[in-house]
Amino acid sequence: MHVPNGFIDAPVSVGAGLVAAAGVAVALRGARRELDDRTAPLAGLTAAFVFAAQMLNFPVASGTSGHLLGGALAAILVGPYTGVLCVSVVLLVQALLFADGGVSALGVNIVLMAIVTVLAGYGLFRGLLKVLPKNRAAVTGASFAAALVSVPASAAAFTLIYALGGTADVPIGGLATAMLGVHVLIGIGEALITAVTVSSVLRVRPDLVYGARELIGRPELRVQAPVPAQA
């Protein structure tokens, strides 16, 4: 859910815009390191992927469904800097073209959904991989944990921004409890989708999972004698 205009007051919106601009500037430098001159097409196509993946609805139970947010997934698949860029560009296009999320709240949305999710998710992911054994199950488990934490982390950051510049006097303690409660549930869904997605990419192109690229090499080509068909 994107923060619209008028939800956060003007000074805090502008402040968040500055933080977002700084974060995106750092990500731009980092992405050039991750992808060099391939940055624009690859990050662009990944952004298109995140955008399309958000349109896929996952049924939860009778009638309700949720969709992917994709911050942690993008960071694990293409790297943290490129991940921040992809999600930021998706948010920019959504705000300008689809009126989804306010133009004045774009900074807030980038901070919450691109920067915080990637920092929390990817940070935890790399931390876990340091202590876990180096195999596919561990990478899948770490992706689950990363996505699970990234969503409530974003909700906590929202509560913080709301405490600074919220326009309604909702008790902050209550808001924090409600936001975290709901977003832990959303996080479980996000974690499930992220983990299965990462695991399925690992099976086919392990070299494309940026977060685990040095753990798992390319599968070696095995040549076998053809098995005669059973009649």
Binding site: L45, F58, S62, T197, S199, L208
Partner: peptide, 21 residues
């Protein structure tokens, strides 16, 4: 229909990522 479909749908997401990338 319900949450058990996640596996299939998430594999589609994975395939979509590979095709996009």
């Amino acid at each position: 229909r319900d949450v058990r479909a996640t596996g299939v749908l998430a594999k589609s997401v994975g395939a979509l990522f590979l095709r996009s990338y």
